[in-house]
Nucleic acid binder design. Structure first.
Lengths: 332, 332
DNA sequence: TTGTAAGCGTTATCAT
DNA sequence: ATGATAACGCTTACAA
């Protein structure tokens, strides 16, 4: 691999001049510039990002931490962030946290040690305090899908409570009064916000909340399967089943079919997220649209604005969920 | 951020000793080692990976290039690779190629410039020659889902032709003789291999291949929608529709339902890949299982073996597709 | 076992 | 406009 030395040699100029040409951040005469460019081409020179980053303390890359690499949800988020940054000539370094404190911290430290210019984090295990502390450090961070008062201007969130409210309200408006709920894990904030919205809607319709119609799932398909089975076994009747996300709803649909239940005739089912295949399920899933890709884009824009001086970008911190009515929930 | 200097100061030892402790690759007395560790803890020292990598020409991280970050297929692949490497204490740096030559090359150069210890590539636009050339360089590379004779020992592939053969054979065995096909893009190798298998099966059953029952799609859901519409419009009857992948098949299912066609009674449909929601579609999709997550794991293992000296790992270069029979294809 | 010092490939601050 | 040269934070012979 050719280095800057060899380029400067071949071009007959100093190191500094070569550096100036690559960064074009200082006047270099057209003639010498051309000599340098020619030398670079001839040698197939590619700057060493590591050395560059060590010397300049910049890296033109931003770290991205997601819980998992697979799954429809994070895929969209990563895609949004990456494309936005790439268009700006920046690179993204992705790593995972697996919703585990140690792994999240480890991932963050990895990204920091790589000299990322900024961090975009979708973390769920690490504490608010840790993030606030981290925020005081030198590297700007953006939190996605989590709201922390003390650093509100660094957060990109969805109003999950509103979403929870909207979906349950739509079920109530269809006449349902016996409504079961499969939630996400209790320790996840978005999960709780959705439940909060759910309860608010119930209250508005004077429907008492029944703890026995609540099952705590884990946001996976299997969780939905288990949830339906468990709720059915409990023996308390319900005509609608609101799920904390689409993946669990898809598990519910599959299990219901297996048990010979007709959705939506015997049971209305709803999801949350509007993942890519929600409209491909049978029946097509009534759900809440979660503009996660756009939010990924926005997180990137926030970084571009703050770190890379794209002043004119408009930042929007909170996104609004929307009801998407399809065929899995009907009038009772 | 504390540096190695401050640690050596506080511990009262030399730079080199601190370095030895962090890498524990040379004898250090227990006493001094403890002093160093204490100093590190006290300062909250975190080694600077950039400097480390510059000095040692290693980075403990491997570059991963995928066409897209979203989608069920690559998500599984990245997940497999990442978890395998992470368990070995290595990190993965992910970037995208978007099936575009320039972007793929750009992505590869980015990874190289980051000093990755190895590259795992899922590339489709770049030429064989380019990869062969790249392979001659200093950084070991692994190619996933693409077979290149000259570097067969660096490739992890699936026998796509066999898969294409198996799925069409299963349809033929159900008595179908008028079989339409929606393929992936012509310029993708896997797409062509699948077609090749398809044709072989037809031949075996003495069914002439009909070019007019062939539609070239793009491996996306929309491609499937358009494909079905186009094939129907052509007016040539068919009782089965074999799709080049599951995403297109899902588009076909949705469009068929929209048109009031009953799948599988009026039309048998098959996919390829067995993506995560293939069993959630209605009807559940008969398809070919593509063990992409395992292949992601294997690519990582190949790197671990070659680059990180885990000698005992067993490497498997070619994976075998398996027929998964569900409900979308029935006896005619 | 420990220390010294020369890199690693850049950037950036001075001079000129 | 260009050139020397000292960082950047670490690894690694080579000495001691």
């Amino acid at each position: 691999m050719a280095t800057i030395y060899q380029v400067s040699d071949l071009a007959g100029v100093s190191l500094a001049t070569v550096s100036r040409v690559m960064n074009n951040n200082a006047k270099v005469s057209d003639k010498t510039k051309q000599k340098v460019l020619d030398a670079m081409k001839e040698l197939g020179y590619r700057p060493n990002a590591t050395a560059r980053s060590l010397a300049s303390n910049r890296s033109d890359s931003v770290g991205l931490l997601v819980p998992e690499l697979h799954g429809p949800f994070f895929g969209q988020m990563m895609g949004g962030t990456e494309s936005e940054l790439r268009d700006a000539g920046k690179h993204v370094i992705i790593t995972t946290g697996h919703s585990d404190v140690d792994k999240e911290v480890d991932g963050i430290e990895f990204l920091l040690s790589r000299n990322c210019d900024a961090l975009i984090l979708h973390v769920e295990a690490v504490s608010d305090e840790y993030l606030i502390e981290l925020h005081k450090g030198k590297v700007p961070i953006v939190i996605i899908n989590r709201y922390i008062e003390e650093m509100a201007d660094r957060c990109i969130t969805l109003d999950n409570a509103l979403g929870g409210y909207l979906i349950t309200k739509s079920v109530l408006e269809k006449g349902h009064r016996e409504i079961a709920y499969i939630s996400g894990p209790k320790w996840k904030d978005d999960s709780n916000q959705r439940i909060k919205g759910h309860k608010k809607a119930l209250e508005e319709f004077n429907v008492p909340f029944n703890e026995q119609l609540m099952y705590q799932g884990d946001f996976t398909q299997t969780g939905g399967c288990d949830g339906l089975t468990s709720l059915l076994d409990a023996g308390i009747p319900f005509t609608a089943l609101v799920c904390g996300n689409d993946e669990m709803a898809s598990g519910v649909l599959a299990t219901a079919r297996q048990k010979g239940m007709d959705v939506p005739k015997e049971l209305s089912v709803t999801g949350f997220d509007n993942i890519i295949y929600a409209s491909l399920l049978f029946p097509t899933l009534t759900t809440i649209d979660y503009p996660i890709r756009q939010m990924g884009h926005m997180a990137a824009k926030l970084v571009l604005k703050d770190v890379y001086d794209k002043k004119k970008l408009e930042i929007r911190h909170q996104f609004i969920p929307k009801l998407v009515e399809r065929n899995s929930a009907i009038i009772v």
